[in-house]
Structures are given as structure tokens and as C-alpha cells.
Amino acid sequence: MTTLGAVFRPQLPPERLRSVARAADDAGLDQLWLWEDCFLESGIAAAAAALAWTHHLTVGVGLLPVPLRNVALTAMETATLHRLFPGRVHLGVGHGVQDWMAQAGAHTASPLTLLREHLDALRALLAGERVTVQGRYVTLDDVRLDYPPTTPAPVLAGARGPRTLHLTGQAADGTLLDAGMGVEGVARARRLADQGREDAGRTGHHPVTAYLLAATGADATARMDAELHSENLPPGTGVAGDAQTIAHAVRRMADAGADTVVLQPTADEPDPEGFVRFAARQVRPLLR
């Protein structure tokens, strides 16, 4: 069965997170995903709060922009969450939006090199290794976490372009795809990530998590059309309609290679709590 999630978009104020997270938990949603978009809300702080407010819900952060983060700090925060809430955390890292990185004084000449160095160091630290590295961007001198995770702590990486998608297969534990990819993009990403994994001599399944723009309700089509226009996304990237329509779109994403599909509401979703309940109680049963 495809794992189903939903997004709490950071366009909502942070104080709204509690009711949305509890609604998702009570309804039995598999996953709730958060964003660390500039300059809205912190992914780690929001994840810690959502996990503390809920009992069963898995919380993901997709994604943490690595130009803003020292890898040792990322490892410390990630390990802390995994030890406090074992088995309920998914974290992704990625390039971040380059214009935002420049605004924050964190622009890098080679985002791909930075992401590779960050992934290698982060995964080693979370595995409890003692790490010394002198890279182009990442420097660590005899660093080891005192409290590494006691359960597996997979690190996902966000990607869109072919070189980054190949890298996620080589150096990450899973690939995270944004809502602009569509079905064909998911299939392409699956091929490139799997090729990267094969080239690196890694074995086992490489999970892919994909966002899917979704809207339901009387004005769903109008809201979806406006969202696609504002984000400059092609028609057909998102889905608007009832549970059957959205479940069909989720199955298409799964058939293309997504293990987890995360429903992303429009920025003007009028009922975020209702949206997560709809995903859990109406769409999820249709995926069995």
C-alpha cells in the first residue's frame, strides 16, 4: 500500500500547526510534512512541536537547505529528534532556492558539491562515526555525536535536475520530489536515482517521496488553476476533485515509482484541518 501524507504549508502561521497536526494524528494520516522555506518557519522547531503534540503521526521535514546549515548542527538536531521520537521522523536536505540562499548570504558556487559533502558527513555522523573531513564546503575535525540515533535515521535528499537526482541515489537514503515533477517526472527521477545507486554499488530499495498538489471542495478546480498559474506549473501537474479522483492521481504517482505520495494543498486552502482529515479518512482507504 502506498504511504500517504499531507503538507502543513508554512504560509500558515506557526500557531496553526498544533490543530492541524492533532487532526492528522486523530484521523490516522500516515505522515505530515513541513517545509523550511525562507523566510517563513523553521523545519526543526516545527517538527519537534508537531511530534510532541501527537502520538502516532510520522513527521517529515522536506527540506532543510544545506547552505544555511552547518552539518554538525544538522546532525545534532536530527539525532535529538530521532532519540526523542524514534521511528516517527523523516528529514530531507537539499540545495534550497538559490535566490533565497543569496539573500541570506549563503550562496554557494557549487550547490551539488555542497550537497554531496553534507550528505556524506551527515549520514556518517548519524551512524555514530567519528568524522574528520576537509572538503570544499564541509570541514569537521574529529567530530562524533555523543547521542547518535538508537534507531535507523535515513536521510532523504530533495532533487529535480538529473545530476542531483543521480546524486540522491549515490549518497542519500531516499529521494524527495517537489510537486512540479508530475507523473513523468517521478518516473524519470526513479530511473536516475536507481542508476546513481547502482553506480555507487549500493543495494536495496531506494524510497522515493513525491508531493502532489491537490484540492477538494466546491471551488477546488478554480483554486488549483490559480495555484498552477501562480507557481508557473503546467496544467495537469495538480489534481482537483473528490476522493476517488485524488486517489487515482496518487496511484498514478505510485505506478511511476513513488513509494510515498504527499498531498500538498493550495496556498489558499480554506480548511487545513479538514484537508488532512480528508486525506486520511477518504483518500487513504481507497489506496488499499
Rank of each mutant, 00 (worst) to 15 (best):
Q103T: 15
Q103P: 00
A104E: 10
A104H: 11
A104S: 09
A104I: 04
A104R: 10
G105K: 00
G105C: 01
A106T: 07
A106V: 02
A106F: 01
A106C: 15
H107S: 14
H107I: 10
H107D: 09
H107P: 05
H107W: 11
H107A: 15
A109H: 14
A109N: 12
S110L: 06
S110T: 13
S110C: 12
P111Y: 00
P111H: 00
P111S: 00
P111C: 01
P111F: 00
L112V: 14
L112S: 06
L112H: 14
L112Y: 10
T113V: 15
T113W: 06
T113I: 13
T113D: 12
L114E: 04
L114R: 11
L114Q: 11
L114F: 08
L114P: 06
L115S: 11
L115A: 13
R116V: 07
R116M: 03
E117T: 11
E117N: 09
E117F: 09
E117D: 09
H118L: 03
H118V: 12
L119R: 13
L119T: 11
L119C: 13
L119G: 11
D120F: 07
D120L: 15
D120R: 14
D120T: 15
D120H: 12
D120E: 15
A121Y: 04
A121R: 06
A121P: 07
L122V: 12
L122C: 11
L122W: 08
L122R: 13
L122T: 08
L122Q: 10
R123P: 10
R123T: 13
R123V: 05
R123Q: 11
R123N: 07
A124K: 14
A124T: 07
A124I: 08
A124D: 09
L125P: 04
L125W: 09
L125A: 07
L126P: 07
L126N: 00
L126W: 04
L126T: 05
L126H: 02
L126S: 01
L126C: 06
A127E: 08
A127H: 04
A127C: 03
A127D: 15
A127K: 03
A127T: 08
A127F: 02
A127P: 05
G128I: 05
G128H: 06
G128Y: 03
G128Q: 02
G128K: 02
G128R: 03
G128C: 06
E129H: 11
E129T: 01
E129I: 06
R130T: 14
R130F: 02
R130W: 03
V131A: 03
V131Y: 03
V131T: 02
V131I: 13
T132F: 01
T132M: 02
T132A: 03
T132L: 03
V133C: 09
V133K: 08
V133T: 14
V133M: 10
Q134C: 03
Q134E: 13
Q134Y: 04
Q134R: 15
Q134F: 01
Q134T: 12
G135D: 04
G135H: 06
G135T: 08
G135E: 05
G135R: 04
G135I: 05
G135F: 04
